[in-house]
Amino acid sequence: MKIKKSVEKFLNTVSVERNLSDNTLKAYLGDLTAFGKFLQEKDITEIDCDDLRQYIRILEANHYKDTTIKRKIATIKVFFNFLEQEGIISDSPTRKIRKRYITAKRLPKVMSKDEVERLLREAYHEVRKLSELSRQLVESNSPNDKLMRAYRDRVILEILFSTGIRIGELVNLDIEDVNLNDECILIFGKGRRERIVLISNSEVLKALKEYLILRKNIPSRSKALFLNKYGERLSIYSIEHIFQKYCEKAKIRSHYTPHCLRHTMATMLLNNGADIRVVQEILGHSCITTTQIYTEVSLEHKKRVLMKFNQRNKMKIIS
Rank of each mutant, 00 (worst) to 15 (best):
S220R: 09
H241I: 12
L269H: 02
K99L: 15
D51W: 09
G284A: 08
A27H: 06
R221K: 14
R215L: 07
E17F: 04
I56Y: 01
I282F: 05
K129G: 02
Y101Q: 03
P143M: 06
L170T: 06
K109L: 10
S235A: 00
I288C: 07
F79E: 04
R215Y: 05
T94M: 15
K105H: 14
F188N: 14
L20T: 04
E132L: 15
N23Y: 08
R215A: 03
F80Q: 07
A150H: 04
L25Y: 02
Q311G: 00
I185L: 03
Y151L: 13
S134T: 13
Q85S: 13
A266P: 10
M315N: 10
S319R: 11
G273K: 01
Y256I: 12
Y237L: 11
N217R: 15
R195E: 07
I58P: 01
A123F: 00
V178E: 00
V14M: 06
D22S: 14
L25W: 05
L147K: 05
K105F: 05
G87S: 06
D153Y: 09
S220A: 13
T45F: 04
L212K: 08
Y211S: 03
N201E: 08
E169I: 06
S254C: 10
R57F: 14
I3K: 08
V297D: 06
A150C: 10
C49A: 13
I282M: 14
S92L: 03
I288T: 07
